[in-house]
Design a protein around this nucleic acid. Structure first.
Lengths: 114, 114
DNA sequence: TGAGCATATGAGCACACGTTCAGATGTATC
DNA sequence: GATACATCTGAACGTGTGCTCATATGCTCA
């Protein structure tokens, strides 16, 4: 146990002062959490190339359209995707380029560690 | 139910062909998953500014050093942090600039959505 | 309006995750 | 070697997550 022990008190104080707020940390964690599921990643990768409806996303990802719909809700709530009704269908697209950028960077980082 | 229904067969075929491999998707998901926990984020944010030992990281993040150690293992396994022994202590640092870059981009994205 | 398809939602289950607690390993100092 | 401190590890517990199944809502066309 060393809960009370601090080696570099100054550094700790600096870090505590510089740490982002609880709320901001949670907000960042939420975004990364949304990107941390294989099914959601496949959805986003597909949408980064072409707008697609729920049915087609189900075909691309290989899971049920119900499961896709559940995941799209998560992505919608996080503002990572947006959608437009087209008759019976709902056509989804990436919310903005930040999302594609995050995807690209994650992919790049994953690629480097063979 | 519309499991078998496909609206835009060509687009689906294109996406299926362009989708990254199962393995690569998992690898990307793993990295984002590592970034999706508030405690781990706080650890990484602190390390992006200064190298710190486990005890001081515990003080900065506000959790037990045991919990920090568990999370550091996750980050080590993902190659997001590296460490060097300094006597009794283990001093951790970010593995590379990619990590800081991902952090910055996630933070930026989180900041925009008030 | 009523049938049929696309999408959304709620409950439930299996599994994964983060923490705590207790104890093991490792390193320096005496 | 023995003690003290820092870190690591394994088990266990509560909680969250992603899927399936059943059902509800929305939209179109006859």
């Amino acid at each position: 146990m060393c809960e009370a022990t601090i080696v570099d008190a100054e550094a700790v104080a600096r870090m505590l002062a510089a740490q982002p707020s609880e709320e901001h940390v949670r907000s960042i964690a939420d975004i990364f959490a949304a990107l941390s599921d294989p099914t959601r990643l496949r959805i986003l990768v597909a949408l980064s190339r072409e707008d697609l409806c729920v049915c087609d996303l189900a075909a691309v990802t290989g899971v049920s359209s119900s499961a896709v719909s559940h995941q799209l809700r998560v992505l919608r709530d996080r503002r990572l995707v947006s959608f437009a009704r087209d008759g019976k269908r709902a056509v989804y697209s990436l919310a903005d380029e930040h999302v594609a950028s995050l995807l690209a960077q994650g992919s790049e980082h994953a690629g480097e560690r063979a």
